[in-house]
Simulated assay, not measured.
Amino acid sequence: MTTYAALLRGINVGGRKKLPMAELRQLMDGLGYDGVRTHLQSGQAVFTSGHGDEESLAAELADAIEKRFGFVVDVIVRDHAYLAAVAAACPFPAAELEAKQLHVTYFSAPVDAARFAEIDREAYLPEEFRLGERELYLYAPDGLGRSKLAEHLAKPRINKGVIATSRNWNTVVKLVELTAE
Score class of each variant (00 low, 15 high):
M1L: 10
T2Q: 09
T3V: 13
T3L: 11
A6V: 05
L7K: 09
L8H: 00
R9V: 03
G10D: 14
G14V: 02
P20M: 06
A22T: 14
G32D: 03
Y33V: 09
D34T: 08
V36D: 03
R37Y: 03
T38W: 04
L40W: 07
S42N: 14
G43E: 01
F47R: 04
T48R: 15
H51A: 12
E54P: 14
E55T: 15
A59I: 10
D63F: 04
D63Y: 00
I65H: 03
E66N: 05
V73C: 02
Y82I: 00
A85V: 05
A89F: 01
C90G: 06
A94Q: 14
A94C: 07
E98M: 07
F107A: 09
D112M: 06
A114Q: 15
R115M: 08
A123P: 05
E127R: 04
E127W: 03
E128T: 13
E128C: 01
F129N: 03
Y137W: 10
R146E: 13
E151N: 15
E151V: 08
P156W: 04
P156D: 15
R157M: 08
N159F: 01
A164I: 03
S166Y: 05
N170P: 09
V172H: 13
L178C: 08
L178T: 09
T179D: 11
